[in-house]
């Protein structure tokens, strides 16, 4: 497989870095090498935040974004501040309620009820995990089982059940929409 650039974007506190770390683990289980980086600012209580995942066959390849193949935007800030980096033909997944003006362009764009499904799974804070599930189903790049195992490894014990539920809800949502 060739190089793939994925960004999770939104605001501090939405679990963007945790989300990318889970995806990193899931892809690792599928035998793919990845590099993960993130915005490095004090944004734990809001403000634009992102986390990037670069998949490449060559482990020494450039580990930062050059043009996004996938943008997962959890709110308007994340969508606005990342729009210029999205490549034509890229997949753009965004929350249908928190992103009112999605990036304009020739994208494969999908408005999804990420927050609504997260609330059903237990907490709005699981919107990041719902998004991962939806992405996995729609892209076919990562199996649900790998995502589930990554969630077990990377989230605190008390959130594992809720996050697994969120991932499965997202996966079902992705299947319906693809």
């Amino acid at each position: 497989m060739s190089r793939l650039e994925i960004r999770l974007a939104g605001s501090g506190g939405q679990g963007l870095i945790t989300g990318a770390r889970i995806l990193f683990e899931a892809f690792s289980m599928e035998g793919r090498r990845a590099a993960q980086s993130q915005s490095y600012e004090p944004t734990s209580r809001g403000g634009f935040c992102y986390s990037d995942l670069i998949l490449a066959d060559d482990a020494t390849d450039y580990p930062l974004v050059t043009g996004l193949d996938v943008l997962i935007a959890l709110d308007q800030t994340g969508a606005d501040r990342s729009a210029a980096m999205v490549k034509p033909g890229a997949t753009v997944l965004y929350d249908e309620r928190l992103v009112t003006a999605p990036p304009a362009g020739e994208f494969n764009a999908h408005a999804l009820p990420l927050n609504a499904h997260a609330v059903s799974a237990g907490s709005a804070r699981g919107a990041n995990i719902v998004a991962l599930g939806a992405y996995a189903a729609m892209s076919g790049t990562c199996r649900l089982e790998s995502l589930e195992e990554a969630i077990r490894r990377e989230t605190p014990e008390r959130f594992v059940a809720m996050n697994l539920e969120a991932a499965r809800a997202g996966f079902r949502l992705g299947k319906e929409r693809s």
């Binding site: 990193f24 690792s28 090498r33 990845a34 590099a35 980086s37 490095y40 482990a59 580990p63 930062l64």
Partner: peptide, 10 residues
Amino acid sequence: DQVVAQLLES
């Protein structure tokens, strides 16, 4: 540099 310092890689 800071980029490589904060980067996650296998």
